[in-house]
Write a protein that binds this DNA or RNA. Structure first.
Length: 686
RNA sequence: GGCGGGGUAGCUCAGGUGGUUAGAGCGUCGGAUUCAUAACCCGAAGGUCACGGGUUCAACUCCCGUCCCCGCUACCA
């Protein structure tokens, strides 16, 4: 079913998730998105198919305006910096986009606002009024991130309108106590504003049919499952506009200060990037997006599944003239040395730094990240593994085979491809195996199985090594030089095929090898031919394709990460102090020593325990979010401190009277606070 | 808690409409070899296929339950 559908396509449009222009690219992005997409694109190109590989920087949205404010720059300056950095490092790394654009480009603003206008004119969008916080001094509505206030949960005074960074709770701006505008410092006022929504709920039947029925077997289980989960939970209308001045302006009269919500404009960036490319090269962009014989494929990370499988397709569908994606191969996440990659904690291997620290080793990283790509589950990148894969696989299997063959050719035949003579069974068998590789590897690629494809490529080098070792030409040369000619001819054909078939995976290596063999780039299915190199053809001097990566280079990287780890924990040890309070403020708190009498888990929650506590004054129920840290059986009898005069509050239907005090370190571990001596319950604390 | 994904050799992963001795690469050990960047090649050891039930002549593969990891989501007074 999925195979027959591939036949009808005449061209392929490949998109890779637009990197957000507020930071550089790291190995997680590469392994999950850009490398697989690049391999796929290069493969199709090499097959001679019509294909475009499109990407660009995603440059709108609130986080960029925040970063700009923090650094005292304009948002444009921020995105310029990262756009340039990202674009350059992609190029140097060998990600071969047909076009890399950016969403601040004029053509993108035109495309995105026209797209919105079409949906608006068609009556697709639903208009709704709502109340939002407004800064009167600056005369603008405030994004959630532009409002700070006191967290209603933990009392932290610098909580943001969308999240409290102290306790991690996600908030809505309305929950904040004493909200303040980040812009003016004044309390914001509520004001009516109008926004447009994409009514995803209306298109549930379409999505059900298209995804749940139509792509049950050709989409990856993680993607299909995630979509099913979303659809089954019930889709809600999603706002497509925001009150902000950084982004694509609404193409409607009288709505200054409104822009398209960044998630709406970003995927349209694929389209505008295609248009920009088409204008520059004199092509027709529309067939890549509107012709039913075009296969549209989005490469993304798992955080992006809902946008690319549900929201963007709904946009394309409602617009009316666009095709929908044929597949959305999404990868899971890559961890680094056992921990989640984190931009803010600097726990990452940054591409631009790698390129500096390992010059000329683009393909090593491409190889390692493809071989260890998180295709079906999260995976871990370690520098030890990086070293091992370079030394024991790329170098020992691939590089070594090529080197052996070329050295022997120079030694015995002065660098000229010797002619084949009598073909033995082994020769024929090897050439037969060789012939199958383009098909085998190609099939893996067409099913988005990049790890499998790469290991297929390595198998070809193994075939070569085995053949060469078994035939032992170095033993025969004195007695049977003609036989050696045949053997080396066969080995050279394998090398030639390696040069051809490695191109999608290891483009730099492929280029070097082609040069060494004196070959021009070839079509995919030329790989596998047994006469790619004519006899008598002169090859160049061999150079090493890969060099050994020594222990000190690896230790340097590990040390670099260790320093990061130290910096992080040093930084985190000291959380900034809260605002100064008066003694009177303090005396309002009634803190008491207490003992836990009973503990049970609150059903249907992960973190909540219902505790019965003896406060000395009374026995009361307290709900505490500590279930992940403490076992119920171990709690009865435990001494604690509670805040006894906190207003009661219902949590999951249980009235909680007071709050259990705990200390939390930067790893999120909790510990009890209690009197060291065995004091009576109800002793007051001051 | 709900939903989704995953739990298979020391490591990274394949696998199967249920059916002979569960596969690969790397690592380890042994052998062979010297053309080659101490590389290649051959061989071996290594797994109760997370755990407990059930269906079946037969389950790692199907069903039910439990546990663990990841993501989304609810919850942290």
């Amino acid at each position: 079913m999925s195979n027959s559908s591939q036949k009808k396509y005449k061209r392929t449009t490949i998109t890779a998730a637009l990197p957000y222009a507020n930071g550089p690219i790291h190995i997680g992005h590469l392994a999950g998105v850009y490398i697989p997409a690049d391999i796929y694109a290069r493969y199709l190109r090499q097959k001679g198919e019509e294909v475009i590989y499109i990407c660009g920087s995603d440059e709108h949205g609130v986080p960029i305006t925040i970063k700009a404010r923090k650094e005292g720059k304009t948002p444009q300056q921020v995105v310029d910096k990262y756009h340039d950095l990202i674009k350059k490092s992609f190029e140097e790394f060998g990600i071969a986009f047909d076009h890399y654009s950016r969403t601040s480009a004029r053509i993108h603003h035109e495309t995105a606002s026209a797209f919105f206008k079409t949906l608006y004119d068609k009556g697709v969008l639903v208009e709704k009024e709502s109340e939002q916080y407004y800064d009167e001094e600056n005369k603008q509505f405030l994004a959630d991130r532009y409002i700070t206030g006191t967290c209603p949960h933990c009392g932290y005074e610098q909580a943001y309108g969308d999240q409290c960074e102290n306790c991690g709770t996600s908030l809505s701006p309305n929950e904040l106590i004493n909200p303040k505008s980040v812009l003016s410092g004044n309390p914001p006022v509520k004001k009516n504003t109008r926004h447009w929504y994409l009514p995803l709920d209306h298109y549930e039947p379409m999505l059900r049919k298209w995804i749940l029925e139509g792509h049950k077997h050709d989409w990856k289980p993680n993607v299909y499952g995630q979509c099913k989960s979303w659809i089954d939970q019930g889709l809600l209308p999603r706002a497509v506009t925001r009150d902000l001045d950084w982004g694509v302006k609404l193409p409607l009269e009288g709505f200054d200060g409104k822009v398209l919500y960044v998630w709406f404009d970003a995927p349209i960036g694929y389209i505008s990037s295609t248009r920009e490319w088409a204008e520059a090269t004199g092509r027709d962009w529309e067939k890549y997006w509107k012709s039913p014989d075009t296969k549209l494929v989005h490469f993304i990370g798992k955080d992006n599944i809902v946008f690319h499988c549900i929201i963007f397709p709904t946009m394309l569908h409602t617009e009316g003239s666009y095709i929908l994606p044929d597949n959305v191969p999404s990868n899971e996440f890559l961890n680094l040395e056992g921990n989640k990659i984190s931009t803010s904690r600097n726990w990452a291997v940054w591409l631009h730094e790698y390129l500096k620290e390992f010059p000329g080793k683009q393909d090593v990283l491409r190889y390692v990240l493809c071989a260890a790509a998180p295709e079906t589950k999260d995976n871990d990148f370690t520098w030890k593994d990086f070293q091992a894969r370079n030394n024991n696989e790329l170098l020992a299997v691939f590089g070594n085979f090529v080197n052996r063959t070329l050295v022997l050719t120079h030694k015995y035949f002065d660098g000229r491809v010797p002619a084949k003579g009598q073909i033995t069974g082994k020769d024929a068998q090897t050439l037969e195996q060789l012939a199958q590789f383009p098909e085998t590897i190609g099939k893996s690629l067409e099913h988005y199985r990049f790890r499998e494809a790469l290991s297929g490529l390595m198998n070809l080098a193994r075939v070569g090594n085995r053949y060469l070792t078994e035939e032992e030409p170095w033993k025969l040369f004195k007695t049977d030089p003609e036989r050696v000619q045949t053997i080396l001819n066969v080995c050279l054909q394998v090398c030639a095929s390696l040069a051809v078939l490695s191109e999608p995976f290891l483009p730099h290596t492929s280029g070097k090898l082609l040069k060494m063999l004196g070959m021009k780039p070839c079509k995919w299915h030329d790989g596998g031919r047994s006469n790619l190199l004519e006899s008598g053809h002169a090859i160049n001097k061999p150079e090493l394709l890969f060099e050994r990566i020594e222990e000190d280079a690896i230790q340097a990287q590990i040390e670099k990460l260790r320093v990061t780890l130290n910096n992080n924990s040093a930084g985190e040890a000291a959380k900034p102090l809260k605002e100064t309070i008066t003694f009177d403020d303090f005396t309002k708190l009634d803190l008491r020593t207490a003992t836990i009498l009973e503990a049970e888990k609150v059903p249907k929650t992960k973190k909540l325990l219902k505790l019965l506590v003896d406060t000395g004054v009374d026995k009361r129920t307290v709900v505490a979010g500590i279930a992940e840290h403490f076992n119920c059986d171990k709690l009865p009898g435990r001494k604690a401190v509670i805040l006894a005069n906190l207003a009661p509050r219902k949590i999951k239907g249980i009235e909680s009277h007071g709050m259990l005090l705990m200390a939390e370190n930067h790893d999120g571990a909790l510990t009890f606070i209690a009197a060291e001596e065995n004091f009576d319950n109800g002793s007051s604390i001051s």
